[in-house]
């Protein structure tokens, strides 16, 4: 293996890791605050790309990519609030909320996927990249779009971290995740923050869709595979925290890049699951979870 190959694997691993991190943070946020797994998260990714395409592309409104991104992120935030109100809130008091939420979010994902197929058709579309052209670094070339993802994703993740750590609302979100009853008794508006965490997760998923739309062709089911990866990442990293999945995302991204190079794309998915199972056998709380006694 030449140094160039190693570098190439490293770069594509970081690109994948950045996308997984953005997805996994959203899933983990909903998971920690509401205690449910949102199966519609993958559709948020798809819709992020389709909303942006509809506004930005010449075959849509043709207002340019910046407008497309702004509209898509805002629309996803609204959709996140709506999803929480319709799919989760009516069932909050039920003992089997976790199970009900699996069904409602899966139903919503199916509904939205087919709605996208009906309204936008099955023909693959492509979103304009964030930046045109290629850049070469250390002797390897990568697209400017991928380079932008590598730079922007950590900035977004850092902002999310700052929001959760440094603002009153962010610390209230963490408080709900740690002890809901104590949060209620401190006067924290738990229901409103549920909606906020859904909105934030949906916006982040929308951004992932926009980033993906510039790399691959868009299809109504484009979010499914990334969501499964994000699920692996979240479980692998330890579901009880936000930072665990972020770190795990980069580990998984790099691992995937190595696997694709060494054993091929066909076996990569299986290899990732083998690694996840092995890690969970040794550390049941996840790679970065449960560090304290």
């Amino acid at each position: 293996m030449t140094a160039e190959t190693v570098l190439y694997i490293l770069v594509s691993g970081v690109v994948l890791g950045s996308l997984y991190a953005l997805m996994a943070v959203g899933l983990a946020l909903v998971w920690t605050t509401l205690g449910i797994f949102n199966f519609a998260h993958g559709m948020f990714i798809t819709l992020g790309a389709y909303f942006a395409w509809t506004v930005a592309d010449g075959n849509g409104l043709g207002w340019g990519l910046a407008a497309g991104i702004a509209f898509s992120v805002a629309a996803l935030a609204a959709l996140g609030c709506l999803a929480e109100a319709v799919l989760v809130r009516p069932f909050l008091k039920r003992d089997n909320l976790v199970l009900v939420a699996v069904i409602t979010t899966l139903a919503a994902a199916t509904f939205l996927e087919n709605a996208t197929l009906l309204s936008r058709g099955g023909r693959s579309k492509q979103l304009a990249p964030l930046a045109e052209g290629n850049i070469s670094m250390f002797g390897i070339g990568l697209s400017a779009h991928e380079a932008a993802i590598v730079v922007i994703a950590p900035l977004i993740l850092y902002s999310v971290w700052l929001f959760l750590q440094r603002t009153r609302t962010g610390s209230a979100l963490r408080a709900i995740a740690q002890n809901q009853e104590a949060a209620l008794l401190a006067g924290i508006p738990v229901a409103r923050l549920y909606a906020l965490s859904f909105a934030l997760a949906a916006s982040l998923a929308g951004l992932v869709g926009i980033f993906l739309g510039g790399i691959k062709f868009m299809s109504p089911s484009m979010g499914t595979d990334p969501m499964v990866k994000a699920l692996v990442v979240v479980i692998f990293g330890g579901i009880a925290s936000i930072s665990g999945p972020i770190r795990a995302a980069y580990v998984i991204g790099l691992l995937e890049a190595v696997c694709i190079y060494s054993i091929g794309i066909y076996w990569t998915q299986a290899a990732l699951f083998v690694v996840m199972i092995a890690v969970l056998m040794i550390r049941p709380t996840g790679l970065f979870g449960g560090q304290r006694a």
Binding site: A175, Q178, N179, A182, A183
Partner: peptide, 8 residues
């Protein structure tokens, strides 16, 4: 027996 927010 309030456990409060353990990780804060």
């Amino acid at each position: 027996g309030n456990q409060l927010f353990p990780e804060m």
